[in-house]
Write a protein that binds this DNA or RNA. Structure first.
Lengths: 104, 104
DNA sequence: ATTAAAGTTCGATAACATTCGAACTTTGGT
DNA sequence: ACCAAAGTTCGAATGTTATCGAACTTTAAT
C-alpha cells in the first residue's frame, strides 16, 4: 500500500477515542468469526448495532461517534451499511493486513 | 500497550512525510541487520547520519525534518543519539511489535 | 581565527481535527 | 397520525499540526 493511503489509515487510528472504537469493533468482529467458525477466512459478516453499542460504552455525543465512524470508513478500515433498522459494520481485513505488512 | 501510547504511535505515523521518513529509517535498519547477520535479534545497532540522509532525500526544510525526528522519538518509535559528528538513529522494535500485536 | 556543516529552537501562519449541541431525517412502534 | 429511537449534518469553539525561514549552537576543517 502506498504511503498516502497508509498514512490515512494511521491517521484514523491516531485519535485515542477512535482507536478505542476501532478496537471495540475489531475485537467483536474476531469473536464473531470464532463463534461462526469462519476463523481465518478474513473478516466476519459484520457486527450489528455497532453504533448503538458504541453509544452505550463510550462517553461521547452521538454526533462525535458518528464522525468517528465516518473517519474509520474514509480511511478504508471499516465498511458500514444500514439495512433498515440495523447499522452493520465490517472490518476491512485488507487494510489491517496492509498495516501489519508495512511493519514486517 | 494501552490506548494512549498506541494512539501516539499511530499519530506519529499519520503524517505522510513522517511515515516516509520512518519507512526510510526502518528499511535501512533492517538491511543493516541482514548485513551484520543480526537478523531476528531485534533491531540494528543504529543507522548513522540519518538526519543528513533524510535531508538529502526528502524535499523538506531541515527544521521540519528535525521536527519529524522529534515526533518519532516522542512516540517511542525511534531513539536518536549524537556521538560527536554523527546522529545515530535506532528503531525501537518493542513499539513496532506493539502495533503488530494490536492488529492480531 | 574564520568559516562551513549539522542540527536545534523560535515565532509565525495556515490548515486541519475534536467535540459539542441543535436541528434534521428516516424507520419502527403504538 | 404521533412519538421515540437511531443516525446524520451543520456551525461554532477550541486546540493541534505542518511547515517555513531566521537565528542560534556545536563540532570539524582550513
Amino acid at each position: 500500500m502506498e504511503a498516502t493511503r497508509l498514512a490515512k489509515v494511521f491517521k484514523a487510528l491516531s485519535n485515542e477515542r477512535r482507536l478505542e472504537l476501532f478496537r471495540l469493533i475489531y475485537s467483536q468482529c474476531r469473536q464473531e468469526e470464532v463463534r461462526s467458525q469462519k476463523d481465518g477466512k478474513g473478516c466476519c459478516e459484520g457486527i450489528e448495532k455497532a453504533f448503538t453499542m458504541a453509544c452505550g460504552c463510550m462517553d461521547l455525543s452521538r454526533s462525535t461517534i458518528s464522525h468517528h465512524f465516518k473517519e474509520l470508513q474514509n480511511a478504508g478500515l471499516i465498511t458500514c451499511t444500514r439495512q433498515r433498522q440495523t447499522f452493520i459494520c465490517q472490518v476491512n481485513e485488507e487494510y489491517v493486513e496492509a498495516v501489519r505488512s508495512f511493519l514486517s
